[in-house]
Write a protein that binds this DNA or RNA. Structure first.
Lengths: 138, 138
DNA sequence: CTCACTGCAAAGGCTTTGCAGATTC
DNA sequence: GAATCTGCAAAGCCTTTGCAGTGAG
């Protein structure tokens, strides 16, 4: 949390109570908050916050690489997570729960893919859909 | 095209001129049409068509598995393609062009992933972002 | 003191929905 | 004839944007 604040200051961004509230929310809101989740939490700290400020800050943090923005197929909202080691997600079709998956099957094959098509790979997006342990049992 | 019409009829859906126009558009509109592209084309056949009919039919066709609906990160529209052999897409960050990629790196590893997390995989979603041959050259 | 940030309110854009009338089968 | 399908219009929803005022550095 402190590193993020420092990074913002280094880059010349100002530290407002609202911005601080957003950052705190990212750590306290659970793993994959939506903009609305962040707002709900941030309002406890700063009741006057608007959703637009949330979006502005989430977008800023995404731009500077602090956050990942994740779009889930068939859902109309983005969720966010603090960017760390490259990974992907398992998404349960029944309960919607998301789990992180450290393993990345793309890395190993990227060279091959790139050569075949003369395509220069810069990144990728992978979500795996299925049923989590709990929902298989239930 | 005929197979799709037959499938719809088998399932009890009615065949209207509008629906036929949508299906024809899917074959004639190029590879990754948006709802709007389909509308533009379908209007040539049936000028009175509304965008809502397009969406209703695209959603129907997606539900019965005839179409894939693809959501591209950072873009706000869905594109559609006729579902065929399982594959993924290379998406150019410069020009937005999409190419199909027959190779699927997930299949090979799915067993492993499933076991690790006790997660039952039903499907996945992969897009690879980078620069196409033309844009690398330009 | 200056420039960035916030809140408000409104717009934007894609997609969906309610409804009454028209059409398939 | 019954049920689906269409067009219209409007709403819904998430997200973005313009603007004037506020606040950080």
């Amino acid at each position: 949390m402190e590193e993020i604040i420092e990074l913002l200051q280094t880059k010349g961004y100002k530290m407002t109570p609202q911005r601080r509230a957003v950052i705190k929310a990212l750590f306290d809101c659970g793993q994959f908050p939506t903009a609305q989740d962040i707002l709900d939490y941030a309002k406890k700290i700063n009741p006057d916050m608007g959703i637009d400020t949330i979006y502005r800050n989430l977008n800023l943090l995404t731009e500077i690489g602090v956050l990942n923005q994740i779009t889930i197929k068939g859902r109309d909202v983005s969720v966010f997570e603090i960017a760390s080691k490259h990974h992907h997600h398992l998404i349960c079709l029944a309960c919607g729960k998301m789990e992180c998956l450290d393993y990345c099957p793309i890395m190993a094959d990227s060279e091959k893919i790139a050569q075949e098509k003369n395509f220069k790979i810069m990144g990728h997006n992978l979500e795996i859909y299925g049923y989590c342990a709990a929902c298989q049992a239930g």
